[in-house]
Design a protein around this nucleic acid. Structure first.
Lengths: 360, 360
DNA sequence: AAACTTTGCTAAAACGCTTGATCACGGAAC
DNA sequence: GTTCCGTGATCAAGCGTTTTAGCAAAGTTT
């Protein structure tokens, strides 16, 4: 019974299967053209809805039917070959997943790229310079429109040599050499100011700031913002109220004792993790948030901030926006110069760790 | 002074700039060939190191020099056009960033794809069916080798019609119709068993399980694993010890009172967020972890688990591995059938919330 | 009825690359 | 002095599109 069933006609029910044509080679323009009895040029014109193309309605319909019939999908690769410019944007990240943050950069970049008809090509380098070089090479070979070079925390970065072969934008990082590249970063000063203002609005006057020990743009910026907010409120800056600790849960916890000596009613922590530790420290000292001490953090690390008891007021790092803005800058839709990084606002997120009304 | 400086020769110092040639059109094979004084075929042969190509060493060197000189980058798009098969793998995710988890799937998929010479094309759909359709269409047009369809939490899913036009694998989800598709999911049963075993190894015999209220493969699987572990340890299953609560911090906190009535020495929580809430509840009742009550969670949500006080023992959801395994299945490197989802182990992560030695 | 104009469509080149077929040439074998 | 062979390189077709120039037929002016 295993005879050649070549010319006997298809026995299967799916006589002209529109889907999954046995995973042969994909349907091409030419095949559509043949099916519709026209030239490939005509099919192309129909597909691309060229306005000044003159095609009879009847023909147009015939082509459309053939396309549907065969389940034709245009080959985007071939398209870019002739047009010369691809519709790819590369995103190289030094830690896609090391942190919950990086995902947001991808997300923002992807949404924005999509909006303009671009596809995102991502590469994760985990900070490995060799991988990074390969990743960039790959992107260059795919003739990306440009590359977003991003870091998972805001910092200065050296620009890889090969990156310069492409149009590129730094995201969440910047070059220490001025004028070297376009960049988009979070506005740490404004963020620090907003964080402090949450406390000021709560009626607090003696506000401590637990800063990080490790140097970073965030360290300086967030402090500056704190000072600016105080100044705007007419409160003299007291260096005594600025502590420093390692920016994690342990650091926050460990800073409790020092903090309590300062006799403050409110604390602004460098980040949410420190705030989380501080919560533990305060609790152990029988103090409650926000009644005894109001707390704000920074970063809006959802999993922490939204779920602490009480939920933590904080300031968001605008990772989604950074990704999106990076794409817009790359495509020339947003203003940007090499001379100064564009700063994206860090919006305040108010929760229950600060009471709105003034304390005693 | 705005005269035509066309034929006056380049005044700029960079006479034969090897990098960034004024962002003209990219250097092509032909240009390299001309520079080296050979045919494009020869250049191609040199680049691809064809073994049975006979090229004189002298020529080979000349070509290589020209490539370096001009900063030539092969056009990967053109390459795939002629070879017929692209080097793309698509990843569609319903929540790249909604959760810290999804990033790990991307990461794993990207690393593995990379390893086999593939580039990852990602799309984030936020569960929007229209977006999803567009995303899949885009990937089909880029002639991807296949598509990874992933969800941010383990669940059954309907397979989008267009997805069938490609080779695909479900990642972190599965089709309710048996035999419909290859899939890779976390091994919830084993995970639940491992979580329970951590407590058993700690010497505990009366172990509560706070399960989720919302139905999910995880709910059933994690319970099953708990029962399996007890049975293996010769401990009769007591339904009284299984509570249910909404799987978040509030739920865990709210379950404290009920839990304390059960008179247990250990608790296994459906997830880390519940454990986080439970910590608060226990603390309010003057109980300490792990001395009074040992706790394990599930998910290994780093930001929580590693930073609670004490750090939480838990079980990892293998998102990275899911992404990587998905790619391997797609490429046919791992065994896989349509009949049953491949399960990836959820490794235990022991921290300080369970003491190793037996309690009173 | 001759001269244009419009309409509907196609031929063919081009995009950057790979690859099987082919060729010229010098040396070895007969 | 043919014939054969190995070496080193080129030719040319083809991958799936887009796009410009152009052609034939039909319609519109004079």
């Amino acid at each position: 019974m295993v005879s050649k069933e070549k010319s006997t006609g298809k026995p299967a029910p799916a006589a002209r299967a529109p889907r999954t044509p046995e995973r042969a080679h994909p349907v091409t323009l030419r095949e559509v053209a043949e099916a519709a009895g026209v030239s490939t040029a005509t099919v192309s014109l129909v597909i691309n809805q060229k306005k000044n193309a003159r095609i009879a309605d009847e023909t147009r319909q015939r082509v459309k039917d053939a396309i549907r019939q065969l389940g034709y999908r245009p080959n985007a690769l071939a398209k870019t070959l002739v047009s010369g410019t691809s519709k790819f944007i590369g995103l190289v990240a030094d830690g896609v997943a090391t942190t919950p943050f990086a995902g947001q950069i991808i997300h923002g970049a992807q949404d924005e790229a999509w909006k303009h008809g671009y596809a995102l090509l991502i590469a994760n380098t985990e900070g490995n310079r060799d991988l990074e070089k390969d990743a960039i090479a790959m992107m260059l070979e795919y003739k990306v429109r440009g590359i977003l070079y991003s870091t998972w925390f805001h910092r200065p970065t050296a620009i890889p040599e090969t990156l310069r072969e492409a149009d590129f934008v730094l995201v969440n990082c910047f070059s220490p050499e001025p004028g070297a590249a376009r960049a988009v970063v979070p506005d740490e000063e404004q963020g620090g100011q907003s964080a402090t203002e949450i406390l000021l609005r709560g009626g607090h006057r003696r506000i401590a700031f637990i800063n990080a020990t490790i140097p970073a743009p965030a360290k300086d910026g967030r402090l500056q913002g704190y000072q600016d907010a105080l100044e705007a409120a007419g409160i003299p800056f007291d260096p005594e109220l600025v502590l420093e600790a390692y920016p994690d849960q342990e650091g926050g916890y460990g800073a409790t004792a020092e903090l309590l000596k300062r006799n403050v009613t409110a604390v602004y922590c460098y980040n949410d993790r420190m705030a989380m530790g501080l919560y533990d420290g305060l609790r152990e000292n029988g103090l409650s948030v926000p009644d005894d001490i109001a707390v704000v953090g920074f970063d809006n690390q959802e999993v922490i901030a939204a779920h602490l008891r009480p939920p933590l007021s904080t300031v968001s790092l605008p990772h989604y926006e950074l990704g999106a803005a990076g794409v817009r800058m790359l495509l020339g839709l947003d203003e940007a110069s090499n001379d100064a990084a564009v700063k994206i606002a860090c919006p305040a997120v108010e929760r229950a760790s600060v009471t709105a009304h003034s304390p005693a």
